[in-house]
Structure formats: C-alpha cells, structure tokens
Simulated assay, not measured.
Amino acid sequence: MSGPNTDYDPVEVSTLQPEQVEAAREAALAAIAAAGDLDELKSARLEHAGDRSPLALANREIGALPPQARKEAGQRVGQARGAVGQALARRQAELEAEHEERMLADETVDVTLPTDRQPTGARHPITTGSELIADIFVAMGWEVAEGPVVEAEWLNFDALNLGPDHPARTMQDTFWTDPGDDHLVLRTHTSPVQARTMLDREPPIYVVCPGRVFRTDEYDATHSPVFHQVEGLAVDEGITMAHLKGTLDHFATAMFGEGITTRFRPSYFPFTEPSAEVDLVCFVCRGATTVDGQTCRTCKGEGWIEWGGCGVVNPRVLRACGVDTDRYTGFAFGMGIDRTLMFRQGITDMRDLFEGDVRFTTTFGNEL
C-alpha cells in the first residue's frame, strides 16, 4: 500500500488566498468602526463574524486543503478572525458605555421640580361663588355675618314677623328637631343671622349673610332640600327703597356684567314692608327678548329673570330686635346662591352642584 503523496502542491481555494482573507478582515474592521450604535454593531457582527460571513466560509475551506497547506491557511484565517473578534469586543464596550451615558442624561429626574403625579383639584363652585359675593359687598364697606344652621324657632320665625299660624312653620316647609319642646329648626333662610346681628350691635348695620339653608322641597333639577342663600341687611338713618335699588343694581352688574340692572315687582313678605320681587335683565338677550331672531330660551321671551326678594325692613322686625324705629330704617334682600350660579355659569341641573362629581367641580378650577 502506497503512502501519501507529499510532493503534491494543489492550488489554494480562492477564499483562502492571502489577499482575499486580508480584504475580508479590512472590510469587517471598517464596518465595526463605522457602527454608530448597538443595533448597527449587531448587523456588522452578523455580516462579518457570523456563520455566513466571508471569514467563516474561508475557515470551512481549510479542511479541503492537503496537510502541508492547512497550517499556513489556518494561521492566516485565525489571525483575521481574532482581529475581528477583538475589534467587536472593543466597539461593544464603547457603544454600551455611550448608551448608558445617554440614558443617564435623558432619564435624569430633577427631584426639585414640582410633581404632577397627583391631579390638580378644584374648589367647589358654591364655595367660590359665596366668597365672590362676599367680596363684592366687602368692597362696598359691608361686613360678612354668619350664624348656626340649627336655629331657635323664635329667631327663625317670631323675630321676623312670622306668626304662630304662618304656613312656613308647618312640616311642609320646615325641618324640626326632636324633641319638639326644644323649639329648634334647621334654618329655612339666613334671616336669623340678620336678627342676631341687630340684637348684638347698634346701627348702623351693613351685613351680608351667605349660608346653607334647609326646606322640605323635592329634589329635582331646580329644587333641593338643602340649598344656599345670600341675604343682605342695611339699617341706618334715612334708608329708603332707592338705596336698595342701587345696591342690587351694583350687585347684578358685578355678578353678570355691565348693563345688567334690576326691576321691582310688588310682593309680600312678613319681614319687609313694602316688599318686592327682584327681576334681573336677561343676561343673554339683554332684555331684547330674542336672540338671532329666535325667542330667548333663557328668559323665555320675557326679557327679565326672577332673581329673589327684597323690601324695606318691617318696623315690627326692627322693634323685636331692639332697634329704634323712630330713628332707623333698613332694607333687606335675599337671593339663592345656587340659582345665581346656575344663571351665571349656564348650569342646567341644580343636582350637579350637590352630587360630588369631581368632573363637574374641576371645570370651575379655583376661581369663578
């Protein structure tokens, strides 16, 4: 049996020729150096160091060479693949370091900045509306007076000329506390605050009394058993209906804008004489009764909107509270804060004011 032919010198496979291996090496190193991020480096690795890369294919061809040619070809291909592997490792480390630096810069959190992780809240429009009304009168030199919601029967009724047989005393209008012998009620208006003020101090008196009141009304879009009123009282020498008209015109202008005035219609209230219903010029049609040729929906073509009640304080009320009626006269008025806000803000359902839906409240923000 003959031995191997050691004198045979075959022609090398083309991929194993020195110039081909060097060209593949240089192309790989250039692609690695040009990679701008980790994704580009991954593409370069697959193309120049993967299983189908030129150097990997050349390495497979080494086995086809005779023994005397394998050593040199193996060294040449191995050195090229080693250089490519080292270049990949270096570039990988560089790009990872750059990536971490960018992440630290992009994701830096300034812990001194205010956070908005908690949603911004809002004040209830009844609260801000009451404060707005109070500010209007404080700017006129008036004071804000407050009183308890559980009130004595005498202050809620008798002091205000509401006699024992007045229908407002019945269970149809008033919430009475138990036991009945205590003669306590949930106040039906803020007028008891006015009575308390006249009992506690000497005229001149100019006070505005916003607050919560209670009546046994049905709960619907325009009525509630719990609602809010603002009442005003002025007691001084020479007070007339003209002072009342001027005050309410200023109040209306401050709440609804320039050009909004009031008118009086004769009425009856036990605690004022003479008494009047207060109407407001429609703030939508401005008294024209129509809007764009159509009947105004807000005032229903009347040109006026009912707002509240007012009048000159009945002398009986003044005397019951210890005021000298020979020297002093006064006027009083009362409006619903809820109704005023419904007019001013376009609220169509009073229940929205009381049901506690934050989506309704947040539309008003912190100021009206």
Rank of each mutant, 00 (worst) to 15 (best):
G78D: 10
G78V: 13
A80W: 10
G82P: 04
G82F: 08
G82T: 04
A83Y: 02
A83M: 13
A83N: 08
V84P: 15
V84R: 12
G85W: 04
G85I: 02
Q86W: 02
Q86R: 13
Q86I: 09
A87V: 12
A87Y: 04
L88Q: 12
R91N: 11
R91K: 12
Q92D: 09
A93L: 11
E94P: 07
A97C: 06
E98N: 07
E100I: 06
E100F: 08
M103I: 08
M103P: 15
L104T: 05
E107Q: 11
E107P: 12
E107L: 10
V109M: 11
V109H: 02
V109C: 08
D110L: 00
T115G: 15
T115K: 12
R117G: 04
R117L: 13
Q118C: 09
P119D: 00
P119T: 00
P119C: 03
T120W: 10
T120N: 14
R123P: 14
H124T: 03
P125K: 04
P125W: 01
T127M: 15
T128W: 05
G129H: 02
S130M: 15
E131S: 12
A134T: 13
D135Q: 13
D135I: 02
D135W: 04
D135E: 14
F137T: 10
F137L: 11
V138A: 09
W142T: 05
W142V: 06
E143P: 08
E143Q: 12
E143T: 11
G147F: 01
P148W: 00
A152W: 01
A152C: 03
W154H: 04
L155T: 00
L155M: 07
N156R: 00
N156T: 00
N156G: 00
D158W: 01
D158S: 07
A159H: 00
